[in-house]
Design a protein around this nucleic acid. Sequence first.
DNA 1: TTTTAATTGCAAATCATTTGCAATTAATTG
DNA 2: CAATTAATTGCAAATGATTTGCAATTAAAA
Lengths: 153, 153
Amino acid sequence: MKKPCNCPHTHPKQELSSLTTRLRREARKITGPRAAILEILHQHRHPLTNKEIHAELPKGECDLATIYRAMQMLEKLGMVKRFDFGDGVARFELVVEGDDGHHHHLICTQCAQVVEIGECFPAEIEHRIARQNGFRAVTHRLEFFGVCPDCQK
Amino acid sequence: MKKPCNCPHTHPKQELSSLTTRLRREARKITGPRAAILEILHQHRHPLTNKEIHAELPKGECDLATIYRAMQMLEKLGMVKRFDFGDGVARFELVVEGDDGHHHHLICTQCAQVVEIGECFPAEIEHRIARQNGFRAVTHRLEFFGVCPDCQK
DNA sequence: TTTTAATTGCAAATCATTTGCAATTAATTG
DNA sequence: CAATTAATTGCAAATGATTTGCAATTAAAA
Ligand SMILES: [Mn+2]
Ligand SMILES: [Mn+2]
Ligand SMILES: [Zn+2]
Ligand SMILES: [Zn+2]
């Protein structure tokens, strides 16, 4: 079980019901495992790994493979955003309807504490990079790493 | 075999001999596999995966596991930099002596073409992010993704 | 309630990466 | 140059995350 975090960041309130509505809209079944997964994601403000989600679920509630499949689908539907902290494990965060979920994190290299970051790579610079190389639809993946206050002691 | 690339970027000239010197300095043996790996890295300007390096080597020349071990060591010695394009495969690039190799790439999501990028995340913003969250020694991982000129046709 | 396509659990398969171990060898030493 | 030794290698097996085949289950539509 992941310990709760009291950081200022919170997911904009969105009823779980609106989440299931989004699923139904895509002709997807609202199953026990899916509702449970959305529930877990909904009560966490930092990205979770599939294994972490699985650990939060009541034992025997849902197979790990089912979670992997659910996250793939939710990602395709744009309901969750996949993040890569460079440790070879995917992490997911719920995305608010209408948003694309693009944002970044600051991760402690010692204890893996995560901080949600509001800043983004400057658009003007990104546009210049795209133009100079003739690329279209350019975006980026960006994560910060450092030593958190606790781990500095 | 990776097709050669004629992009303007080139590795600052550094004799292979200087590379082996760096190895020797660390009390490491200059073996056939290691020399071959450095040679391969030396003639490429974009990061290579272990499998790609292995494919470039004359068949039977060196085991894949040896390449994995060599890259781990070279990374620890700061002679190569590890990059993560988010596809679950590590890539490595030779690092010039005295440099830390920090830089970024623009990758085509269709054909995987790679462009070396000179820009970096603005230091002032990064410092602010570090300060505001009490983090020390903050750095970042950043890669750009888009559709290259060829793949737009 | 029946029908049916979507979903699930479970086990096996993939893939990148790591590791144990015995055989090999670069580098040092005399 | 030959002996000595710790580092290195090849090979096979182990790991860990993620995916997939398939038969059984089930949500949703009729
Ligand atoms: Mn986040
Ligand atoms: Mn590069
Ligand atoms: Zn951004
Ligand atoms: Zn940078």
